[in-house]
Design a protein around this nucleic acid. Structure first.
Length: 527
RNA sequence: GGGCCCUUAGCUCAGCCGGUAGAGCAACUGACUUUUAAUCAGUAGGUCGAUGGUUCGAAUCCAUCAGGGCUCACCA
């Protein structure tokens, strides 16, 4: 049973909360005062199904959810989150790294929901990726409604908006044309018909537009002039107009997006106004940087993938990363993981003693949608890394033994939480610490002390108590007249464990074994 | 070059509807003959990117500049 830390907040508390999700929520409130509808307030996130969901997808949904929950607390209003998939978009190029390249090559420019699934498991390429998106979001427990662009068009949900765009055709063109290059300007159309003969999404000019009938005339790929209704999926809208049209049709009240889309947002805002709507609230979050502070690009493969993060730390730690400073470009690389992981636990611990606006501004309130868990692991990531580092990976039982000694009062739940951390720490150690471990040779004094300790441990065998072993360690140090006994320990850790600190030696020896410990020491002395 | 965003202690970040700069970690000092990133006590460290302005008063508002990021053909 997992328990939550539930706190009650007054409207004053919410009003005083200053963290960015609350500020965003207040912007949304301002918008809601303008549009005044009584239905659920609609939040939207976007997804492009030409590739699998990634860390940016997670960030957008996590951050949007944070604003959503803050808004709910501030207003008490009902909300929905739409995870929208742009699966009617044409496939511009065959995505690399998928099987059956030649098969897909025959479907260029066709809607992604028409392109066959290269893995053969779903109705289409887009269906495959859409399923991935849902599994991905479900894995984190996000609350959302999946909406497919193709379904919206085919089921006629966007018909009215398509026709609205035709009615406001001049205004829309006036907004779009100045942003286009000369060549594109000549053939630009906000409405993209789907060719009835080839099935491709056509980027062709409209020869005729009849808003009253909802019909357009254009030239098909074979040169034939076609007059068609735009309804029911016969046509779609092009990018910025599509975005605006979707806001209009679905009544989107809030959507955030990456900084690279700043200009698109501006244009789509103007377009939705031309359609007679009010742009949603939202802001542009910053992109992530890699180790060297360069922009992360999927094709370059720098930076870090979400699976990689989750190999070494919890989704909560990733949420914390997303919570912090969304408007500053931040380094997203492996070396931030241990710090963020422990900051998460520190925030969670602090939450227990906070209340009012302070608690609402605590990241864990946002990460856990108002319900942070009560259980803290009895040891944090840095400590576990240290322990793993001492006895090597694959010694999980040993680590558990340590944790039980370290926190005798730890509950089963806490130990379970620690288990997860042990796994993470083990992996992190193998990948990032082990390769960089540096064992230094002992100096003469250390050599003497270590030799004495090893001999003593062998003599005592496995029957000694923790205290006996601990005393043996001290005796070895004292015999060498260390003025500060800590120096002896420091030296011992550096020589034997390859790091400046380590586990308490008595319990370590008891759990790890006296003979095994003596062997560690002997091995170190051989260097 | 135009537009938008960012720049607070060594590091990670908080503070920003104006009222003599904060946290954690790192550093340093002291205590502790038993050390679990030890612990405890304490110290130091920032002209809040720079310069002007508004103000009795600015990290907080305005302007300019610098550095970094994104964007300004096509596609999304």
């Amino acid at each position: 049973m997992s328990a939550y830390q539930i706190k009650n907040f007054t409207s004053d508390d919410a009003g005083d909360a200053k963290s960015w999700p609350f500020q965003e929520a207040r912007n949304l409130i301002k918008r809601m005062e303008k549009v005044k509808h009584n239905g659920p307030v609609v939040f939207e996130t976007g997804y492009g199904p030409s590739g699998p969901p990634h860390i940016g997808t997670f960030g957008e949904v996590a951050r949007t959810t944070m604003v959503r929950r803050a808004f709910e607390l501030l207003t008490g209003r009902e909300t929905r989150l739409i995870a929208f998939s742009d699966d009617m978009d044409g496939m511009r190029k065959v995505p690399p790294h998928v099987p059956n390249q030649e098969l897909l090559a025959g479907y260029l420019q066709m809607p992604l929901t028409v392109v066959p699934d290269p893995w053969g498991s779903h109705a289409s390429f887009a269906h495959h990726n859409n399923a991935k998106l849902r599994a991905f979001l479900d894995q984190f427990g996000f609350d959302y409604e999946f909406v497919s662009s193709t379904d919206c068009y085919r089921e006629g949900k966007f018909d009215e908006t398509l026709i609205r765009v035709m009615e406001r055709y001049e205004a829309v063109m006036e907004i779009m044309l100045p942003t286009l290059g000369e060549e594109r300007r000549a053939s630009y159309s906000p409405i993209l018909p789907i060719s009835p003969t080839t099935g491709r999404v056509l980027y062709v000019p409209m020869l005729e537009i009849d808003a009253a009938k909802g019909e357009v005339v254009y030239q098909d790929e074979d040169g034939q002039k076609i007059r068609t209704s735009v309804r029911g999926g016969a046509a779609k809208l092009q990018w910025k107009v599509d975005w605006a049209g979707r806001w209009h049709a679905l009544g989107v009240d809030y959507e955030m997006s990456g900084e690279d889309l700043t200009e698109s947002v501006r244009l789509s805002n103007r377009i939705v106004m031309a359609l007679g709507g009010e742009p949603p609230a939202g802001f542009n979050y910053q992109l992530f940087l890699d180790e060297q502070g360069k922009k992360i690009s999927k094709t370059k493969g720098n930076g870090i993938a979400i699976e990689e993060w989750l190999t070494y730390a919890s989704p909560q730690s990733l949420s914390l990363y997303m919570f912090q400073n969304p408007k500053a470009a931040k380094k997203l690389y492996f070396d931030v993981i241990p710090k963020i992981a422990d900051e998460y636990w520190a925030h969670l611990e602090k939450y227990a003693e906070q209340d009012g606006a302070k608690a609402l501004d605590n990241p864990v309130w946002h990460i856990h949608e108002g319900k942070p868990p009560t259980v803290l692991p009895p040891a944090n990531f840095a400590m576990l890394l240290n322990l793993v580092s001492a006895c090597g990976a694959g010694e999980e039982a040993t680590l558990r033994g340590f944790i039980k000694k370290y926190r005798p009062g730890a509950s089963a739940e806490e130990l379970a939480a620690a288990d997860e951390l042990i796994t993470f720490a083990g992996r992190y150690f193998e990948k990032f610490i082990k390769p960089n471990k540096t064992f230094r040779p002992p100096d003469a004094r250390e050599q003497a002390a270590l030799a004495m300790l090893s001999a003593r441990l062998k003599e005592m065998g496995e029957a000694g108590s923790e205290d006996d072993y601990q005393t043996a360690v001290f005796d070895a140090g004292k015999a060498q007249n260390y003025e500060n006994i800590r120096d002896w320990f420091k030296g011992l850790y550096e020589v034997v464990f390859g790091q400046p600190a380590g586990p308490r030696m008595g319990p370590f020896t008891k759990i790890y074994g006296a003979a095994a410990t003596a062997k560690l020491i002997d091995d170190a002395l051989m260097h």
